[in-house]
Computed example of a mutant assay.
Amino acid sequence: MKRKIVITTLMFILFTMKIIPAAPLNANAVSAIAIDGKTKMVLYEKNPHMLVPMASTTKIVTALVALNYSDLEEKFKVSKNAASIKGSKVGYRVSEEITVRELTYGLMMRSGNDAAITLAEGISGSVENFAKLMNEYGKEIGLLNTSFETPHGLDRDNHFSTSYDLALATIKAKEIPEFNKIASAKDVKKEEMGFTRDYHNINKILWRSEDADGVKTGYTGKAGKCLVSSFKQGDRETIIVTLNSNNRFDETMKIYKHINEEYEYKKFFTKGEVVKDIKVGNKVYNLGFDKDIILPIKKGSDIEVKISVNNIPVKKFDINLPLGKVDFIQGDICLYSETLKVIDLP
């Protein structure tokens, strides 16, 4: 990989594109995407913004909301509405009292629709109110093409998402250690967790790859077979979504193999490294990053690194303002941008 650095001084425009052109791979899915978990750079895509039903992959956001809006040890009572729901269930009985922690295990590992409704009613009082909360929270985390009507994902006219949005939701969910623990668990014994019953994860991807550590399956008549997966190799994490894919596990593994063959991770800058210095009045400020800049790059790519700094009048200078950025460019496409920060004070 060739690295060419261009330094310019110009008025700063905060603009980030995290798109890599789709590789010549045609996944057998109506919609599919692969995203790097740290940079959110798109590594593969097929109709990533198509609005489609997403079945039980909905429960990723249900779990996210539950983990953010409730106490894990709080107990919710199972209603008749929850116990009688159709589709996949844990088998909770009416009036059972189950902790939020256990309900979330049942939600993610067994894809329990009864767990989803119990969480919704316990947190928001009703499924309808919880769906409103899901939509509000979804917008907060950037799910701009998603609409929730239920916490479980059974087919509804106004219940849809995109593979891109589901990947973003998964990246957000995986910031929570408890979510990672639940989504990656294969089997849980009730005695070890203080639960009311044992749980076995129905997500076969966990057995297909030693790198797999979640996340959620889904199926309905309209949505078809869906799968959101995460793969971890050291500090590298990849999120893969396949929606309406008859061979979802095979297609996911095909995409994952393709990415590993096509991409390599390159470190461009080290945390604390001086990328550029700027003089403001009589003072010189060193600019850089508070983290290593490591990006997934197509093997053999020629990447241009363009460093831009702002023209800020001395009287208006503030180290908390955007002072510059670094663009990583391939051809005429900006693959990634990162804001420059003051890394030490003069």
Rank of each mutant, 00 (worst) to 15 (best):
I7L: 09
I7C: 13
F12Y: 14
P24E: 05
N26K: 07
K40D: 07
K40S: 07
M54C: 10
A55Q: 08
T57D: 07
K59N: 08
L64R: 05
V65T: 05
E74G: 00
N81L: 06
I85L: 00
E97G: 01
R101S: 09
E102W: 08
G106M: 05
M108T: 13
G112N: 06
D114Q: 05
D114E: 07
A120C: 09
A120K: 04
G122L: 01
G122H: 02
M134E: 09
N135P: 10
G138H: 03
K139G: 06
E140A: 02
E149L: 13
L154T: 12
S161D: 05
I171S: 04
I171V: 13
A173F: 06
E175L: 03
I176W: 06
V188P: 12
E191P: 15
I202K: 10
N203K: 10
A212T: 13
K216W: 03
G218L: 09
G218N: 13
A223K: 11
F231M: 13
I239A: 02
L243T: 01
K254I: 11
H258T: 07
I259M: 01
E261A: 07
K266G: 07
K267P: 14
T270E: 13
K271L: 13
D277T: 15
K279S: 05
K279L: 03
N310M: 00
N311Y: 07
P313R: 06
K316L: 15
I319L: 09
F328L: 08
I329E: 05
Q330K: 14
Q330F: 08
Y336P: 03
K341R: 12
K341H: 13
L345I: 15
P346L: 00
